[in-house]
Nucleic acid binder design. Structure first.
Lengths: 388, 388
DNA sequence: ATGGATAAGTTGCGTTCCACAACATATCTC
DNA sequence: GAGATATGTTGTGGAACGCAACTTATCCAT
């Protein structure tokens, strides 16, 4: 008879989670490597891995090139057949992908659309894509959950989109809608917060415990925090909204708006205007800004860098992170004015807090949000692989 | 033979820690109550409590007034004989106390001094006080550790005071000094961060997971963060320094300094000046400001409230806390201008983040820092009561 | 006062999960 | 091909907790 305590409180589920987490985050590992990393006994690892294999969460195979003396240790890898559906609805298109537990991207599509999509339409498209893939690309796969990266404020607890201004969604029970359309568990999160998770686990922030992430997009500046290695949600799930912050702008000439919000002063639109572009993707804008020799362009980049540094300094004082990661057009500004930003932040923040601080561009490409969304979808499985 | 794994990883030490934590934080509990709260079996609780009694960390006694049917359940309380020495060196005096694991304050002294104390002198005084108490007030007690709340920047990892401007200490290995003088383990922390811990566990922030704490003192504005119920240290241990933040001050007339740092604009000194006092303790200042009918005084309080709200709004956007706790003279400002601050923060922060936000004065009195320092000293014991 | 109802402590046994040691196996090196 | 080396495999034992039956202490009604 099973013990009647709360599920998964014991040490076994924890150890299963630990092993699954390691092979998910760090890729395939030999059993011997797992033994060393966890400190558990060989026999215990064998037992735990066997259970994960039985649950079809990991695969075991003999190593191709043993290369060393001693009996070769089987290699354990997360199963590519356990998948999450990752979705990122945006104004002009919707990206949707199926990501394996081994972090392989099994399918990926970008569905352009002329007009804004309604939440119901998004739910229908997700269901339709899953159905189409299931007999083909996802044959043999088990879909664990759906993760949606939403460009807007999201209440993570019950999956309600509170306000996604560019999609014109307000108080939409998105998780429920998609769940109803697909029958699969759904988790939603803010896009920038999920980008922060991705950068922390697999990008510029790997191995660091305290990371501040700011992303510059067409719709403004969002962000996410990692503290003590854990993504910060906040009381309502809205943490990380740097865009609405109002930093001090020491030189009045640097001010462009009466509002003073960071995302009004530091914006993609103003950069596009500076290089006389109407619309462009991040690469084009980056190339244009980098190539430009105009003093006006240079001045605008410098101005935005100054305002950005002021906002960063505030965050650095409060959070004392090891690293600030800048994504989107903020990465471009950071690349063009790296030294200036570092100096400004050092001047405005307390010297001790700025001491070990690094400021880096995001390391992950466009996959960032889908990876973050997949992580969100896998989170429950990874924290408790038993009972499933 | 004991298992050879890393110490205290198993479930037993965890359960011991859980029980000790409960009786430490929530006070004496019946064994029946512990059974219910932990979900563990009666027999297991009996066993665990017996071990804690054997280690002299808790006491068991029969309840005075059973008051209910059924066999009375023994009451378990944290031992008052396990003590931490809590210290708070300040410019004009040093407070030192012995705090029991049951959170009783066994002794407490305020040692005034004419001139600034050197770190060596502080260490000597601590050793001297402990020696004096040990035969008397602390007879029969076991001193677990010393916790020091330092008004300045502190590297918690190795116990070095990086910069305590008002004490004129720089890069002082305080933990080592006090350890050498006393032979007892020493932990140091920033005073405001420890105040945040105290307010979170036992004060205005009880039961909340995400709390921002700001304290207004003579030396400036410090603070601390609690995220997911855990105190935030930051990469170097310097997190929470709100004083050096530069919020936007929308009305130029509200600016008093060219620097713009929060603690320069919102300061005790400016309030004292407004009521024509040279020096005063918090109660006097509070009474004076509350009683004053001067328009100038009122204007100054309102001005500081506006600047404070601007800084708070930035923090609210980024952290989305459930509660902001204001201590010291900030509590006075908050009491006098509660509505204005709430309105300003709501106007400047994103409405969703401000939705459930509460702003409250600190609930703990002058004991705050000593309680926080004692918590710091007890932290290791509480996280692993076995092997000790 | 006395017996039933109730709640909780106590005791002994069973299960789960992991460590350990002895043995088996697969590779490398000479 | 033999020894060295590293690791998988297997069986046993112990730690820690759940469980059920029993015991004890209190309240309450008569």
């Amino acid at each position: 008879m099973p013990p009647s305590t709360s599920p998964a409180a014991g040490t076994r589920p924890q150890n299963l989670a630990r092993i699954l987490g390691i092979v998910h985050e760090d890729g395939a590992q030999s059993r011997a490597a797992l033994t060393e990393r966890t400190g558990l006994n060989r026999s215990t690892i064998a037992d735990l891995v066997a259970e994960l294999v039985r649950r079809r969460l990991v695969d075991e195979r003999v190593p191709e090139t043993p290369g060393r003396v001693g009996r070769p240790s089987p290699v354990v890898s997360a199963s590519a057949d356990v998948v999450a559906i990752a979705v990122n609805p945006e104004v002009d298109a919707m990206e949707i992908a199926a990501v394996g537990l081994d972090r392989s991207i099994r399918v990926r599509e970008r569905l352009e659309s002329e007009s804004l999509q309604t939440p119901d339409a998004v739910a229908a498209v997700i269901a339709e894509r899953i159905a189409a893939w299931s007999s083909d690309e996802l044959a043999g796969a088990r879909i664990e959950a759906i993760g949606i990266a939403v460009p807007g404020l999201v209440r993570t607890s019950d999956g309600v989109v509170r306000n996604a201004p560019h999609l014109e969604w307000r108080d939409v029970p998105l998780a429920d809608l998609v769940r109803a359309a697909t029958g699969i568990p759904v988790f939603i999160g803010n896009d920038a917060s999920l980008g922060a998770v991705a950068e922390h686990r697999y990008g510029a922030g790997r191995g660091l415990e305290d990371v501040v992430y700011l992303n510059g997009g067409a719709s403004g500046i969002g962000g996410g925090l990692i503290i003590h290695g854990i993504p910060v949600a906040g009381a309502g799930g809205y943490a990380g909204e740097f865009g609405q912050n109002r930093p001090r702008i020491s030189d009045d000439a640097d001010r462009r708006t009466s509002d003073g919000a960071l995302e009004a002063e530091v914006s993609r639109r103003l950069l596009l205007d500076a290089v006389d572009l109407d619309a462009a993707d991040d690469e084009t804008l980056d190339a244009e800004l980098t190539a430009s020799e105009s003093a006006d362009v240079s001045a605008e980049v410098a101005r935005q860098a100054r305002v950005l540094a002021s906002a960063l300094a505030n965050a650095v004082n409060v959070l004392n992170p090891a690293l600030v990661v800048l994504g989107g057009f903020l990465a471009t500004i950071a690349a063009l004015r790296a030294e200036q930003i570092a100096d400004d932040v050092a001047a405005l923040a307390m010297s001790e807090s700025a001491e070990g601080l690094e400021i880096r561009p995001a390391a992950l490409g466009a996959d960032r949000l889908l990876i973050g969304a997949a992580e969100l979808a896998f989170a429950e499985l990874l924290s408790d692989p038993s009972e499933r």
